[in-house]
Design a binder for these strands. Structure first.
Lengths: 225, 225, 225, 225
DNA sequence: AATGAATGAGCTTTCATTCAT
DNA sequence: GATGAATGAAAGCTCATTCAT
């Protein structure tokens, strides 16, 4: 299920099976993320990709295999951005921008939320991706009060999962079940509120987060301390 | 396309049409919330309800009508509990307990999150229910700094929707795409963290919320300011 | 899988599901016996029967179920004719005539020979029918030398199965893989030779068989006695 | 539509085309005889042979051509054994042994019985092979009463075909539609009964056959004359 | 009013085959 | 000559729905 192309060698590949594979994956991503598994038909995917229907079977073994490949190839929903290392909210907001996920077309979290029951292997992939995101959240948060960053306690883990829940909900309420104005506002407009919430849930590395720009706008909403 | 039943008029119903309707709705709720729209077959619903398949068409005009009726009949996901009026977290947690929604079988938010694109009318119903939940959240929060509770500002509305996003995410990550341990913990174990987050997002009515029991356990996680 | 109609009541049956069932079975028999399982398409069967394709699924659960039903409804290939009780050759030859199996359309042995590997249940049905035919052959033969007709010895059983093999071969070489002139001769023209062979294999009840008409024509072919 | 290979000409074959051809034929034989024409897929044959799928088209013009080649290359089902010349039962029984047809893998009669309707050319090939077998049977039998061995009379031909029918039936009931114990007994255990039947059908060359070993065991089953 | 027979559309998958490299 | 990509046709099956009784 490796979807990495063999690097763009200058040769014009035999009849470009790899390009076909990519086209299918790309088309499938769009359909699966927007319509979900059931409403996505292999015919439509093949049409979108401009290739023959049969090649889905040839390359992915069928609809399920195609879905698995899409899930497996989905990027980390909380991909760390090099420009703002460490800040989880920044990275999440980056993923919310219209030009995010240029290769993927749609927020990868949608794939993880929807159609989780298609397949056992899909469930495992989803669980893996979720755990990875949770780990990322924990790593970005304030270190445990005790100090040692070794193993996060259960409460920390739970709170990190609540952060993931919040992020998931935002994605869901912006894409799957749009709620206005949440669905239409700029990503940056969510920063202060999200910062408040995440701070409240898992705290923040005292310097790195607070030093980021423009987070005080929502301060007056926070409870008086 | 009007699928509204004759309602409980005083007329002497033919056989027990209302009971049949209810049985169908009940069966459909279970299937729709757990399996989603597409994986739910009318035959299974009819079988579960123990009635003839045709009655779905008769009473609801078809599968879509049945789904609409289920959505329309779904209770408010943030139904206000009389015992703890005003506290939104309490009400949300109540809805998370296994014995909640005895008449509905599953958390009504699932219906709103899933299959939102089935139908235009469904989208409207969903938007309505969502707005209602948001209003409930706003009402439960701290009054606007300015004072007058009249119309909430856009920022307030957005923050309330983030609270809804958090709630939605929790429901999703507990049911649709289970993430452990979040999916399995008792509802009460989420209280302190949720309290922190909601406080951070929309503040809290200073008295009513803080006076509720057992919210200090997670305090050490909050950022020391 | 009971295929017996509820007797031809005078009522014009609701929309005649039974007639549809029969039409499907009839059409399927023809296709299955002539073309075999694989070359028979459900579409063709439905067309032949003049009914909708779906009803195959409705009534028989699918192609395999239809095939099973056909096999289950196939008459005994060595059905005992009342007019000539006891004589196995007569009954076999009767089954070879063009007007035989009016309800079935084709020799039922074809169904047992072909496509025996479709299904475990099919195999069982075939084995059952075969055993029945063998028992019929044994019963028609000369009693065991020892006298008691109780249980046939293994050698007797084997020889009876060779008789069945001969019959099967005749049917096969007349229908499945026609060999001329065997495929085209009248059934009666096979009598003397078959009589000789069956006599040689399992003997004959001395009176009943020899007293049948016209069996001496082939005598000069038999080994000098 | 000529599928005949370049045959073993003295030319220096390109790679080892002939070996590839043989490998394909070998693989196809196994599949066709066991599974029949329809259940045999070209892909499986190519895989079994370890060659590229396209070569089936190249060398045989397609699936049908491959099947034709297999039928054309199938050995005589009643191949004469040098050690026991003349005795047809011996030769038939030899063909029933597990180690028979080492090059072919399965009894060639199966190919002639099954899938007879695939193709007109197949039918011709089959008819040819059948006629050859019948001629072999006639030749092995007792000479015509009249004396001159020139042309067999129609009755003789018919009886020889019944012998072929018996043989075919035995093969069928041992392989295609197994009937126990016939399917499992040793070939030699069928000798006496088959001898009796063949004798009764076409007589026996008075010396050659009766002098063969162990044929009296089943004599008591024959009718006392 | 209610039952069940009948229907058409659509989906996934399989297969043999042809087309380029 | 040989490889693998690509293709079109067709099959079985499921589903929601409509039609009669």
């Amino acid at each position: 299920m490796d979807t990495t192309p063999p690097a763009s060698t200058g040769e014009p590949r035999p009849r470009d099976a790899e390009a076909t594979r990519r086209a299918l994956l790309r088309a499938a991503r769009g359909r699966f993320t927007v319509l979900g598994y059931d409403r996505t038909t292999t015919r439509d995917v093949a049409n979108d990709a401009g290739v023959n229907l049969m090649l889905i079977n040839r390359y992915f073994g069928g609809k399920q295999g195609l879905f698995q490949a899409v899930v497996a190839a989905s990027p980390d929903p909380l991909a760390e951005d090099d420009s703002s290392p460490g800040d989880i909210v920044d990275d999440f907001l980056d993923g919310l921008r219209p030009d995010a996920w240029p290769e993927f077309g749609s927020h990868p979290m949608l794939l993880l939320l929807r159609d989780s029951s298609v397949d056992k292997e899909i469930q495992d992939l989803r669980a893996l991706a979720m755990d990875k995101a949770v780990a990322r959240i924990i790593a970005s948060g304030r270190p445990e009060p005790g100090g040692a960053a070794s193993e996060p306690g259960p409460e920390t883990r739970l709170r990190a999962q609540l952060v993931l829940a919040l992020f998931s909900g935002v994605v869901a309420l912006r894409s799957m079940a749009p709620v206005e104005p949440l669905a239409s506002v700029e990503a940056d407009d969510l920063r202060s509120a999200l910062d408040d919430a995440i701070d409240a849930l898992i705290g923040s590395p005292l310097q790195s987060r607070r030093s980021a720009a423009g987070k005080e706008t929502g301060a007056e909403h926070r409870r008086s301390t």
